[in-house]
């Protein structure tokens, strides 16, 4: 029994079908609990007023936006090295989820920034690098859509993902150098002084786990869809050949 058994599409479909209900339920419950807790039962911040409640969407979405790209990177590497189709399709399935997370992080950030910084948008390093990440997602998805041959598409997007990662990290540093920011430092860190207060951090943790499970559920489901779509393509091709 090794993890590579799940590289078999049939096996993957079968087991993901069994795991899926748990994933849906647990992510739904955790997200609901975290967001309701955060929305209804947290105090207002003495400086930011009720706008702190946005943190329960903003931070988990931003976290998953980056982790989704990281997961795509790992999946692309597995595809390039071991040629498992499920891996390539999982990377393809994750990209739209990642771009939605990026959009949520950008949108909530803009809405939050309006009253706090007095502007919807500033060319702050963090904001700018998220915008660049958004562009990378767009290019990645567009490349998948543009190529007909599925194996070629998987190969090319995998390499784009690898090269893109390097340049995304490079952009992060370039942008840091280019402009000093308005954005505060990390909301959660091991340094106690920097951390947000406990009243906020507990529901935040719940939301983060909820968003993570939501991401997993979506990726599993969408990978299943991609596997089936690929199978339809293969069956149709075989049919044409026999006819």
């Amino acid at each position: 029994m090794s993890i590579w058994e799940y590289a078999n599409p049939r096996k993957f479909l079968h087991s993901s079908e069994r795991v899926m209900p748990y994933l849906w339920v647990s992510s739904g419950v955790l997200m609901a609990v975290g967001l309701i807790w955060g929305f209804f039962f947290t105090p207002d911040d003495y400086r930011q007023g009720s706008t702190v409640k946005i943190i329960f969407l903003h931070v988990p979405a931003a976290l998953m936006a980056i982790n989704a790209w990281f997961m795509m990177l790992v999946a692309s590497l597995i595809w390039v090295i071991r040629r498992h189709h499920v891996s390539a399709l999982a990377a393809k399935a994750a990209a739209p989820v990642g771009i939605v997370m990026t959009l949520i992080a950008l949108a909530t950030g803009a809405i939050w920034g309006q009253p706090m910084w007095g502007t919807w948008w500033a060319w702050d390093p963090r904001l700018t690098s998220f915008l660049v990440l958004f562009l990378f997602y767009l290019g990645y998805i567009a490349l998948w859509e543009a190529i007909d041959n599925p194996d070629t598409a998987a190969d090319l997007t995998a390499i784009l993902c690898l090269v893109g990662t390097v340049f995304a990290v490079l952009s992060r540093y370039a942008v840091n150098f280019w402009n000093q920011g308005l954005h505060q430092g990390a909301s959660l860190s091991l340094d106690e002084k920097e951390n947000v207060a406990d009243a906020f951090s507990n529901p935040l943790y719940v939301c983060m786990v909820g968003f993570g499970l939501f991401f997993l559920a979506m990726v599993f489901y969408r990978t299943g869809t991609e596997i089936r779509a690929r199978r339809i393509k293969a069956l149709l091709a075989r049919q044409r050949q026999e006819a």
């Binding site: 543009a146 090319l156 952009s171």
Partner: peptide
């Protein structure tokens, strides 16, 4: 990346632009 595509021009710009970001930032700086 886009050499085999019929209408690769726009896609090419979309793919290359984000990769140009660091060079542009430091160059213009």
């Amino acid at each position: 990346l886009t050499v085999g595509l019929k209408r690769g021009g726009l896609l090419l710009s979309l793919l290359v632009m984000p990769l140009y970001v660091p060079t542009l930032i430091f160059g213009a700086e």
